[in-house]
Simulated assay, not measured.
Amino acid sequence: MIRLYHFPLSPFSRKVRLTLAEKKLEVELIEERYWEASPDFLRRNPAGKVPVLRIDTKTLSESQAICEYLEESVPTPALMPRDLDGRFEVRRLCAWFDDKFNAEVTSKLLYERVNKKIMGQGYPDSKNVKAGAVRIKYHLDYMAWLLDQRRWLAGDVMTLADLTAAAHLSCLDYISDVDWNRSAVVKDWYAKIKSRPAFRALLADQIPGFPPPAHYADLDF
């Protein structure tokens, strides 16, 4: 049995959900209001963060560690390159999106527009929202630069780097904070990932009080 404690608009949860789906592993999804820090949840992960993956008697936390555990335990289809340099590049880009992109963009837009209200932490900080809206342009341009040289973000095949980036961008697309007209190559890249069977569950997500835009689940934008 595989059970994932997650929150629908957590990019880190989505990253693990995409990995599980690409590996064709059946999973029971349990929505976790992690900010309430329930004793049961803190016993699963004292860090108080989602996602947490339960596989039989094992409890796993931290999205990158979970995804690499899944990659090593279920190696097909491969989401990491076999060569050393390729694996380095995938890990570098995963860190780019989970650390830099999250700090500069996801936390500034998603947290301010959605999480604050859900968690009862007040109103959006307009300075943070403005900062996130500015920084996402830089990141989209960087992705365009990568994709001008490669078929996928880290090379010629889809990897965990693409799933990580798509996890963050899909959360922001849910709240209409991605300008897909800024780069045709980035838009085409996202359309390829968005149309994969592994993405279907994400496109069905609904957050009460925050309906997604019409284009969110439209495979043709």
Rank of each mutant, 00 (worst) to 15 (best):
Y34H: 10
N102Y: 15
P81N: 02
D148H: 11
P208Y: 03
P124V: 12
G132N: 09
L140P: 00
S61K: 03
A154V: 09
D220M: 11
R91G: 08
L169M: 15
S61Y: 06
D85E: 12
A165F: 07
L93P: 07
M119E: 10
Y111D: 01
T57H: 13
P213M: 12
Y190I: 07
N115W: 12
P77Y: 10
L53A: 04
Q149A: 15
K137E: 15
A65W: 14
D173K: 11
L60C: 15
M1F: 02
D125S: 10
K116L: 07
D177V: 00
D162P: 08
G209I: 09
A103M: 03
Q121S: 13
D40V: 15
F210N: 00
A204I: 02
H168Y: 12
A154N: 09
W180H: 12
K130T: 06
R33T: 12
I207V: 14
I175A: 06
T106D: 04
T106F: 03
D56C: 05
N181M: 08
A201R: 10
Y142I: 06
A47T: 14
S38Y: 00
W145N: 10
D148S: 14
Q206E: 04
W145Y: 12
M158N: 00
G155W: 05
Y142K: 06
R87M: 14
S170L: 06
D141E: 15
L169G: 10
G132W: 07
E26S: 14
L172H: 03
V27H: 06
R150W: 05
N45V: 05
R182F: 03
G48R: 05
F221H: 04
L110D: 01
E28M: 08
P197A: 11
N115K: 08
L169T: 13
S170W: 02
V185M: 06
L109Y: 07
H168Q: 14
G132I: 05
P208F: 09
K130V: 02
Y5D: 01
A144N: 11
D173W: 04
L84G: 06
D83T: 13
K192C: 14
L53K: 08
P124R: 12
V27A: 00
I207R: 02
V178T: 08
S38C: 08
G48H: 07
L140C: 09
K15Y: 13
K117V: 12
T59W: 11
P11G: 05
V90W: 02
L42N: 03
Q64T: 15
E31M: 09
T76F: 11
G120H: 06
L110Y: 01
E104L: 13
